[in-house]
Simulated scan of single mutants.
Amino acid sequence: MAATVSNFNYGAVTPIAAYVMAALGASLGLRCTTRSLRRPHHRARWLALGSVSFGCGIWAMHFIAMIGFDVEDAVVHYDRNQTLLSLVVVIACVAVGMFLVGYRGRSPFILVTAGIITGNGIVTMNGLGMSAIKIDGSLHYDGRIVIFTFVFTIVIATAALWAAVSIHALWSSMGASLIMGLAVTGTHYIGMAALSIQLTGHASIDQSTSNLKFLMVMLAGPLAVLLIASTIVMFDPDMMITDDDLERATPPPRGTGSAYPTQ
């Protein structure tokens, strides 16, 4: 029996909250990358913080959006191990992409390579997150929408990495973060449009409350990381760094022969 699926069980609350998390993660990733270029002796630390922040933002976006996910006449559970694995995967892949552009520059080859790795990480995270769903039925996906989402995610990931090493002024990076947050959140809902569910039974007990508690517990860690990262970035002396300051202070990245040009 085909199930009725909703992604907006709480109305606009979950998509708006998901967007805020995606934009916050993107903003922290951009600002941390700017600091990594400003402080080459601490580049690895700032890139690591940016990677964790961006990855947690993407992951939090997905599972906050999933709070609004509901299947009529069915109980939805999540496998804890797969849920946590999806967080590790997206952080690891974002880190590979950010470290590549942070150390090797923004040449087309590096950007595309890093974008493919990061985009694959985001897609894999979504796949693991969806496979973590345990329901009395089977999940099916429209292949055309899945392929479109995959390609779109790689493009967005590449654009995000380009912005990370190209946009340094505070207000410009904030604007870029808002756009990236919208794009990342959009990939989630586009991907969810590919989903259909065939039920093999009916739920006898409504456990939506326990499911909500599980997701909130899972989200507690990443949200705490984003809060700590936000505090570190906000109280950093270079919060208001300008492009001119960055150009004067940044040595050429290894293998590029020139400093990152300003925008």
Rank of each mutant, 00 (worst) to 15 (best):
A3M: 03
V5Q: 03
F8N: 15
P15K: 11
A17Q: 09
A18D: 02
L24D: 03
L24N: 07
G25H: 07
S27C: 05
T33W: 06
R35E: 07
R39G: 00
P40W: 02
P40Y: 03
H41G: 12
R43G: 01
A44I: 03
A44S: 14
V52Q: 09
V52P: 12
S53R: 05
G57S: 02
A60S: 15
A60G: 04
A60H: 15
A65I: 01
M66P: 01
G68K: 00
D70L: 09
D70H: 15
D73Y: 08
V75I: 10
V75G: 08
D79I: 05
N81I: 13
S86Y: 05
V89N: 10
F99C: 07
V101C: 00
Y103F: 15
F109I: 13
L111R: 01
A114G: 02
G115K: 06
G119P: 01
I122N: 10
N126T: 07
S131D: 15
G137N: 08
G137T: 10
L139P: 04
L139G: 02
L139N: 06
R144L: 15
R144S: 15
I145N: 00
V151E: 04
I154W: 04
I156G: 01
T158E: 07
A159Q: 05
A163M: 15
I167M: 06
L170H: 12
W171H: 14
S173E: 14
S173L: 10
S177C: 13
L178D: 03
I179F: 11
G181F: 12
G181I: 15
L182K: 06
L182C: 15
T185F: 04
G186R: 03
G186W: 09
H188S: 06
A194V: 13
I197C: 08
T200E: 13
T200L: 03
G201N: 10
G201V: 04
S204N: 14
T209G: 04
L215F: 11
V225W: 12
L227T: 04
A229Q: 11
T231Q: 11
V233N: 11
D238H: 15
M239S: 08
M240Q: 12
I241F: 09
D243H: 09
L246E: 06
L246P: 09
E247V: 14
R248C: 02
A249H: 08
A249L: 11
P252N: 05
T256G: 00
G257T: 05
S258W: 11
S258F: 08
